[in-house]
Design a protein around this nucleic acid. Sequence first.
RNA 1: GGUGCCAUAGCUCAGUUGGUAGAGCACAGGACUGAAAAUCCUGGUGUCCCUGGUUCAACUCCAGGUGGCACCA
Length: 298
Amino acid sequence: MNNTLITILGPTATGKTDFAIRLAQKINTEIISSDSRQMYREMKIGTATPGKIELNTVPHHFIGNLSIHDYYNASMFEEEVLSLLGEFFTKFSQVIMVGGSGMYIDAVCEGIDELPVVDPQIRMKLQEQYKKEGIESLRIQLKLLDPEYYKTVDLKNPNRILKGLEISIMTGKPYSSFLTKKKKHREFRILKIGLALPREILYQKIDRRVDLMVESGLIEEARKLYPLRSLNALNTVGYKELFSYFDGDINRAKAIELIKRNTRHFAKRQITWFKRDPKINWIHPDEFEKAVKICQDS
RNA sequence: GGUGCCAUAGCUCAGUUGGUAGAGCACAGGACUGAAAAUCCUGGUGUCCCUGGUUCAACUCCAGGUGGCACCA
């Protein structure tokens, strides 16, 4: 069993895309994207999706494979990637996965518990309840339906409480009874390479990239999606700020400034997520040869 | 040149009837098993412009200086 999934990760704007393409060419393999937003074909500019030239250089998977109208989650990603890897490992001994969506990466590498798909009706009802009656009403209900989960959940985070309630109501069993917290065994080895930059440099790169996105037509892209703004996929940095601009709440310059700031916040959250994974081999994006060596030694 | 106002955190500003100071944003740290580029939690980071004076004690009061703004010449 020498098959290896090489996972390239790190915060946004560190140059993961180019790095992965170079590496894929070097070791002659294909690329799986682990980016939860580059999957949406309508959101190319704002998510820094690789362009045609890049996609033609090395075959990519999970890029533009979804519409913003589609429902998708980390568990579905786990399943699809595993199935694809089963096929790939008959052709390649090493496959590259690249992206910055921590939970999606973990779902593939460590697995995620099986949960039933939630009926959209139940979700909508609960969201109505949250809007009308506030978070306290959700807490009371959760304490009743899943006292176990109630003890450990962040009671200030509506999304977490809503998730627990959705599953508990849907199945008639407490949400916590589905959680095993057990890591799943994989039939391949996993090698994690993290790209890291000093904070100051990272922030400069983010600012520059946002300006580039605007030059490449981000505003026009967002304008087209504006009527669909309520879709979850569009609750994304780079789009939500422009929607506020279209609403007339802020001006164009302010929107661009906010995109930069919110991208910085996003990068920080990614860094925090990755920090707790001791298996990541951190390198500077310029240290390509070091990565090659890590791959050969593995 | 004269008069007036201002000078406090990275920024915008509050405040202390004299006991070394606090908001928003920025920024930093963290949580996170299904919509995750989402959602949520925590933290003040300071030569209070400078130099003297008064005082047990000055960021606060007084004088001078420096810088900024406004008005008058």
